[in-house]
Simulated scan of single mutants.
Amino acid sequence: MTTTLDGGDWIRGITIRQPWATCILAGKRTENRPVHWPWRGWILLHSGKQLDRAALRDPLVATAIRDRELHRGAVIGVARLTDCHLDQGPEPCTSPWAQRDVHHLILADVHELPLPVPVRGALSAWKPSQDLVDRVLQQLPGLRP
């Protein structure tokens, strides 16, 4: 399946270190970022090549990734970015994944790819090529932008 839209017009990519990227596939819906993200809409979930080894000792993370492979350097899913807000209180975000004093990217409609698609990512939001978008959508025939 292909889309008539250019790859970068309706979707962006976001690179997330492991194990955090896999945690999103397992139910984590708050991604912590140091800066505000103005983009809203569909995003490719790209697992970075770096591994956050300290995170592997976190019980919440360990439970989420149990029996899952930590693919690196590949698009492993898609999600819809619905909001981004700064958590400064006095009412903190209630997600167990949320960190204080950072921006929270709120994710919905997460879809895991059956087969990871190897590709280079970037530190900020990036525009995927049409070829990459087509390869991802081929694995998710029910997804309509």
Rank of each mutant, 00 (worst) to 15 (best):
H71W: 03
I65Y: 00
I76E: 01
R40V: 06
D58K: 09
L70R: 06
Q50W: 05
R72Q: 08
W37K: 01
G73I: 02
R40Y: 03
V35Y: 13
R66D: 15
A55G: 12
G48D: 04
W42R: 13
D52K: 02
V35L: 08
L60V: 09
R40P: 11
P59E: 00
G73P: 12
A74S: 13
W37V: 15
R53Y: 06
R53M: 06
L70E: 04
Q50P: 15
W42S: 13
V78K: 00
G77P: 14
A55F: 06
R53A: 11
L45Q: 03
G41E: 02
A74D: 11
D58N: 15
A55N: 12
P59C: 12
A79K: 00
G77V: 08
W39A: 11
I76S: 03
I65H: 01
I76Q: 08
G77F: 02
R57N: 15
G73R: 02
Q50G: 04
A79R: 05
S47N: 03
L70I: 12
T63L: 01
L51V: 13
G77E: 01
I76C: 01
W39Y: 04
V78N: 01
R72W: 01
V35W: 10
A64S: 08
Q50S: 14
I65M: 05
A54Q: 14
L60F: 04
D58Q: 06
R66G: 03
L45H: 03
A64K: 05
L56R: 09
L60N: 11
A54T: 14
V75I: 04
D58Y: 04
P38H: 14
W42N: 10
A79I: 00
L51E: 13
G41S: 05
D52F: 07
I43K: 11
G41I: 06
H36M: 03
R68A: 09
P38D: 14
D52E: 12
A79Q: 04
R57A: 14
G48A: 14
R68L: 10
W39P: 13
I65F: 00
V35K: 13
A74L: 07
D52V: 07
I76P: 02
R68M: 11
D52R: 02
G73F: 08
L45T: 02
K49G: 12
V75G: 09
R68I: 11
A74C: 10
D52A: 08
A64E: 06
H71K: 14
A54N: 09
I65E: 00
A62R: 09
A64L: 05
L44F: 05
R72A: 11
A74Q: 01
H36L: 10
I76V: 15
G41V: 07
D67I: 09
A62P: 00
H46A: 10
P59Y: 08
R68H: 15
R68D: 12
L51Q: 10
I43M: 15
V78C: 12
A79T: 01
H36T: 11
I76L: 01
V61K: 01
G41H: 01
D52I: 06
A62K: 06
L70H: 13
I43T: 06
R66Y: 05
R72G: 10
H36N: 11
R66T: 07
K49I: 07
I65V: 15
T63D: 10
R40S: 14
